[in-house]
Design a protein around this nucleic acid. Structure first.
Length: 418
RNA sequence: GGGGGCGUGGUCCAGCGGUUAGGACGCCGGCCUUUCAAGCCGGAGAUCACGGGUUCGAUCCCCGUCGCCCCUACCA
């Protein structure tokens, strides 16, 4: 199997493009075939080197490596012109106001054999002679794609459904060229939550944004694979090896899908909790830099995170001291909070060794002695050390912070209460 | 306007002539509980777009209608 991913560098890599890349990659890996990366940059107005770099970067981050390329379609201009000239010479195409058009027969039809959609028939009467080269001689999409797919011996063209209507045109170019057509598979499009075509307005739409939002590439891969495909009625989680083994074009669905970030969040959380704590710390370092205390904080926060970006708001206080949320302070530091916190301070000062079982026992003893509810003691401690009413478990947090730092923060809170 | 694709709970995926229409996200409730999550348990939610056929029987097959999307560029 020789497949290709052929993005146009007119913007960032969108999740739709990422899914197309993923499916092609899975096909190549699963068949022992080859994935060609071809940059379709013949639109010189809108294609930029920055976009190319961004696309390569996104693919790399997703872990979708290619075997050949990246090839620039624009750099193959000579080859394309050569074929245009040949088509004109052989009478398949003709000049019209400087541009070159392919002759489309008036009668008959062209049938696209699509792995996902079956045979799709296009009557020639509905297709005009279309332009294959501009008046300056530069080749156009339908010509360049056909020539390149042929030259690169592509066996399966797997791309978005928006290309289905252009396929008969490419088939006609191929036929005029005397080339055997590849097999086609047109994937359902991805829509936004409003049912319209996906765009930047619908949240994290580009791969870069997904990355910045703290998603894991393996989770994104798993989620994207399921957007338009399913192995069976119940399986949701797939390792990349599973995906490679089980993915098939035959089971790709025909109807458009909507990107649901909530489900991605959920899935990402599941992947995050599967990570070894050392691995999680490494991933967090990529985002926040290497900092003392990060690994400890990572282990403590892991079960409550859904994305890497959740880490800092939730557990940043374990890494560095932060401002107290006044709303949280007012809510918690009242009634018997001062006394409870004072008692807790003594208990923590005396807890030996300073580990979870001991700290928990010490704090629970305070609860008992004060005849209070657990939260009457725990919440003031939480606000004192984290500045917030929300944090990971209080015992892990206290131990993770260490006795010295915990007592320092509690003392500061107590002095403020005086 | 012309051509093409698609149409199962809010969302994703199952189903491929006979099912109580299944699973997941989300939502609601409960348990757990030191906050928030996570986890576990339970629940609500689908005239299978609509209308005709074919058939003993249609979500599944055929036709039509409607809706959404794509193409119809000297964009890709």
């Amino acid at each position: 199997m020789r497949v290709r991913f052929a993005p146009s560098p007119t913007g960032a890599l969108h999740i739709g493009g990422a899914r197309t890349a993923l499916y092609n990659w899975l096909l190549a890996r699963g068949s022992g075939g080859t994935l060609v990366l071809r940059i379709e940059d013949t639109d010189r107005e809108r294609s930029t080197p920055e976009n190319v770099a961004q696309i390569l970067d996104a693919l790399e981050w997703l872990g979708l490596g290619w075997d050949e390329g990246p090839l620039s379609q624009a750099e193959r201009g000579e080859r394309h012109r050569e074929e245009v000239a040949r088509l004109v010479g052989e009478g398949h195409a003709y000049e019209d106001e400087g541009a070159v058009r392919l002759r489309v027969p008036d009668e008959g039809a062209t049938v696209v054999r699509d792995v996902i959609r079956g045979e799709v028939r296009f009557e020639h009467s509905a297709i005009d002679d279309f332009v294959i080269a501009r008046s300056d001689g530069s080749p156009l999409y339908n010509l360049a794609v056909a020539v390149d797919d042929r030259d690169m011996a592509i066996s399966h063209v797997v791309r978005g459904e928006d290309h289905l209507s252009n396929t008969p045109r490419q088939l006609m170019v191929l036929k005029a060229l005397g080339a055997e057509p590849p097999l086609y598979a047109h994937l359902p499009l991805l829509h936004g939550p409003d049912g319209k075509k996906l765009s930047k307005r619908h949240g994290a739409a580009s791969v870069q944004e997904l990355r910045e939002a703290g998603y894991l590439p393996e989770a994104v891969r798993n989620y994207l694979a399921l957007l338009g495909w399913g192995a069976d009625a119940t399986t949701t989680f797939f390792t990349t090896e599973d995906l490679i083994e089980r993915f098939s074009l035959e089971r790709v669905s025909r109807n458009p899908a909507v990107f649901d970030e909530q489900k991605l969040r959920w899935m990402n959380g599941r992947y995050l909790r599967e990570l070894g704590s050392g691995e999680l710390a490494r991933r967090l370092e990529d985002v926040y830099g290497a900092r003392p205390g990060l690994a400890v904080a990572a282990a403590i926060a892991q079960e409550k995170m859904q994305t890497l970006a959740d880490f800092w708001p939730l557990a940043g206080f374990l890494v560095e001291r932060r401002e107290t949320d006044e709303c949280a302070w007012r809510k918690v530091m009242r009634d018997g909070a001062r006394e409870n916190l004072t008692e807790a301070r003594h208990a923590l000062a005396g807890a030996e060794p300073f580990d979870e079982p001991t700290v928990e026992a010490a704090l629970r003893e305070v609860v008992e002695r004060r005849g209070a509810k657990p939260k009457d003691v725990f919440q003031p401690v939480r606000v004192a050390i984290s500045g917030s009413t929300v944090s990971p478990g209080i015992f892990e947090s206290v131990v993770g912070l260490g006795r010295e730092e915990t007592l320092a923060r509690v003392d500061d809170a107590l002095s403020r209460l005086d």
